[in-house]
Amino acid sequence: MTEGGQRPEYRLLAELEAVFDRLLEQTDALVACWKAYGGAAWSFEHETADAGWLRRSLLDVWYQDGQDGRATRSHVGLVAADERVMEVVHEVNATKQAFAALLAEIRREIPSLIPEIKAVLPFRHPALHDHLRGTGLARLHLKQCWRSIPLAEAPVARVRLAWYSSGRSIKRLTVREAEQKLLALDSDAPHVRIQLRQLAGIPDGEPLAQVQAQAPLMRANLFYREPLEDGRTRRAMNVALPLFVPSPDGRLPDHNRPPPTPPASRTRARRRDERLEDEAFLPSLRVYRYR
């Protein structure tokens, strides 16, 4: 119990509900503010980039039937914004950060609340509840709630968009950690026994690398009209939501249209410092040895 007699889970859930409400209200206010400004917009996937498209993109916070829980949907586009619109974007992103911080606290303190949060929060808003009916969108996708809206910190001369499909995360493992992961699979399975024998044949102190390929994503290269205070003239960022760019005249910067789908094969040359072997040492764990 808290000092006021309220159980911690009720307090955290009430706080999260309040932040979720504020997030939806601010997002609607952002769309209305941009519509009143009359700035231009462009969508990578849709011919019409209007206020309806922007609202759907920014409020796409649902799981679809069969969606991998680790995956998020992208809505790539460009939005020309004046100072007031940019201010509201900052406000929305601040609320998203507060939402993420509360979720992190709940996951740490009361993880059993997470399923209830995904199921209950949408029903606080009748319009969202109606949107769920018959669409296969039954639960909140929490990561799609708190991911930030990308924005440029200064006017941009041009934007170059390109698929990035060579990303991967690499986690170092000890031999002991790899052994524990293999034993957690099925130590009686023939393919696991083979890999355990392989692991036993290398020194205990040899570092290993567990590799996870990342889903293709869109990357935007921004070229500023003037150098920033720190001297930078360009910036690269991943864009899963419409990118807001400062534009006093309401026009978009010059931009390209990338291919509709990512390339089927790796397009970038391998890094010279790439030090992993080509073949997985422990295929079941995607673990590689260093050269």
Rank of each mutant, 00 (worst) to 15 (best):
A94C: 07
V79E: 03
V88P: 06
L78Y: 01
S74Y: 07
R73E: 04
D68L: 14
D65E: 13
E87Q: 15
A71V: 11
V79I: 10
G66F: 05
H90A: 15
K96A: 13
A94T: 08
T95D: 09
S74I: 04
R70F: 07
A80F: 00
D65L: 11
V79S: 05
Q97C: 09
Q97D: 12
K96I: 12
V85S: 01
V88F: 02
E91S: 15
R73V: 03
N93G: 12
R84G: 01
F99I: 10
G77Y: 01
H75F: 11
R70S: 10
D82Y: 08
A101T: 10
R70K: 10
D68C: 10
E87F: 08
S74F: 07
D68W: 08
A98F: 02
D82C: 11
N93K: 13
Q67C: 08
A94G: 12
G66Y: 03
V92H: 00
A98W: 03
H75Q: 08
A80C: 06
E87H: 13
D68M: 10
N93A: 14
V88K: 13
H75I: 05
V79T: 07
S74M: 10
T95N: 14
K96G: 14
M86D: 03
V89Y: 00
D65S: 12
T72E: 07
A81T: 07
L103W: 02
Q67E: 14
F99E: 02
D68F: 09
A101Q: 08
F99T: 08
L78P: 05
Q97F: 06
V89L: 05
T72C: 07
H90V: 12
F99A: 09
K96T: 12
A98P: 03
S74A: 11
V76E: 01
V88Q: 12
K96C: 14
E83G: 06
R73W: 00
A81I: 08
T95S: 15
T72Q: 10
A94V: 11
M86N: 11
A81E: 01
R84Q: 13
V85D: 00
A71R: 09
N93W: 13
L102P: 01
A100Y: 11
R73A: 05
G66N: 04
A101P: 01
E91Y: 00
R84V: 14
V79K: 06
L103E: 02
A101I: 05
A98Q: 14
D65G: 04
G66C: 08
R73L: 10
A100D: 04
L102Y: 02
L103F: 03
E91W: 02
T72Y: 00
V76S: 03
T95V: 14
A100K: 15
L103C: 07
A98G: 06
V89P: 00
E87T: 15
T72I: 11
A100C: 09
D82P: 02
A98Y: 01
V88C: 10
L102G: 09
E87M: 12
F99Q: 04
V92W: 00
A94W: 00
G69L: 09
R84A: 12
M86Q: 14
S74W: 05
G77V: 08
V89M: 01
D82N: 15
G66W: 03
